[in-house]
Structure formats: C-alpha cells, structure tokens
C-alpha cells in the first residue's frame, strides 16, 4: 500500500482513464467477481412490483460490507449493470495499485473525496455530472460501513442535494440482507450464506420538502425493506 504523493485526485484519474481506456483484463476480472459473488451468496433479487429496473436510477442502499455494491451489481439485468457505477470514497480506493485497479477499472466507480476540509471538488456536482452522461449510480447514504447493532445509521445529506440537483432521476431504495454476516469488517475469509437484495418503490424529492423530512422519508423507505420489520420473513 502506498500513501502520500502516490495518491491522485479524482480529476486526474478520470482524465487518465479517458485517455487510456479500460484495462484489458478489467472485463474478465469483473465476470470472475460476479461468479464468485454468486457462488458464495447464491444472491437473489426481490424486485418491487414494477419488476427489474430498466430506466436510469440512483440506487441507495444500506452499507455494511465492501461487497455491498457487488451484490447489487450482480443481480441487476446486464444492460442496466453496464451503465451502473458505484459512488465510493477516493481515499480508500486510491490507496494502492490493486484497489485502484479494482475500483476504477473493474467497477468503474465514481470516486469522491469524503473529507470536506481537504477536497478539491464538490462530490454532488460530480455525481450529477455522471448522471448527465447517462449512468445509474449506487449510493450508500450512511457514508460509511455500519458496524453497530442499529440496522441503519442516519443518512448524510448528499442524497438530498443530488435529488434536488437532478429531480427527474428516480431514487430506488435497495436493502442488502445478510452480507454483513458473510464478510464482517476485518475478516478476509467469506462465509457462504444466502443473501437477498430487495428493491423498493422509487421515490423523488418533493418541490418544497425540507432536507431532514426528505432524508427521514428515504431512510424509512429503505428500512421498510429490511426483514427485521417484515413479519413474513
């Protein structure tokens, strides 16, 4: 792992990526990761009554493991998967050559700087720009991996600002179940367990909805998909 001078800014990265294109083995590596995710978790999607997504969306999900967006990615229909990009912390994914290859080339992540003091550009503007290019986004509004016994941490405000900036793009809550047991933080051997990914009804921000009201509503929509609140499960 390298630090300090070796860390590039997201702008340099995206310019770099544009100029040289995707790494030639990124495609096969992503296929291998998808097969591995299926072998370990036998992951199953539970769609909302509208069926699998076909339009551009912002997916927002609970976050407890590095594998979270891989599972969402795995269950999405291939065409939707190709344009879906996870939003992830630059300081983590640019740490070493390996994480940079995986984050940038394999997952095509939108890397944002999470520390407001040190960042050079606005993460919400970057996300909106990515939406303008036609991509779907996967967002973890808790901001970090949830290590507590609470099912869901309070949301950061990025989701609200993005929804205000691009009100036409629908926000889809996605609950990932069991993956925190497959690979808890700090463990490196995954335990094979069956995971489900539950997609909820899309929502949008209302014209004059206050920030906290919207965040509470979005959080409740996500939480309602969790099996702990569902008596049928």
């Amino acid at each position: 792992m390298t630090t300090g001078t070796d860390v590039a800014t997201p702008d340099q990265i995206s310019a770099d990526a544009r100029s040289r294109g995707r790494h030639p083995i990124a495609g096969p590596v992503s296929t291998l990761i998808l097969l591995f995710a299926r072998a370990v978790t036998a992951v199953r999607a539970i769609w909302s009554p509208d069926g699998p997504p076909s339009r551009q969306h912002v997916y927002f999900a609970n976050h407890s493991s590095h594998g979270d967006f891989i599972l969402i990615w795995t269950v999405l229909p291939p065409r939707e998967r190709r344009r879906t990009r996870p939003v992830a912390g630059a300081e983590y994914w640019l740490k070493s050559r390996l994480t940079r290859f995986v984050g940038r080339d394999v997952f095509n992540a939108v890397l944002i700087e999470r520390q407001p003091e040190t960042r050079s550009d606005d993460p919400v503007a970057r996300m909106a720009g990515t939406l303008d290019e036609g991509a779907s986004l996967i967002l973890f509004p808790e901001g970090t991996r949830n290590q507590t016994d609470d099912p869901l941490l309070p949301f950061k405000s990025g989701l609200y600002h993005l929804a205000k900036l691009r009100p036409d793009v629908e926000l889809v809550p996605v609950w990932i179940s069991n993956l925190n047991r497959v690979m808890p933080k700090g463990e490196f051997v995954p335990i094979p367990l069956i995971c489900t990914v539950t997609f909820g009804q899309p929502l949008r921000v209302c014209a004059d909805e206050p920030k906290q009201d919207f965040l509470d509503r979005a959080r409740a929509a996500l939480l309602s998909l969790s099996p702990h609140t569902d008596t049928a499960a």
């Binding site: 036998a42 069991n178 094979p192």
Partner: peptide
C-alpha cells in the same frame, strides 16, 4: 455445501 449454506443462513 448448498445445504450447509441454507442451514447456516
């Protein structure tokens, strides 16, 4: 393997 995965889940 598949049965153990179901059971442990």
């Amino acid at each position: 393997f598949a049965a153990l995965r179901e059971f442990v889940t």
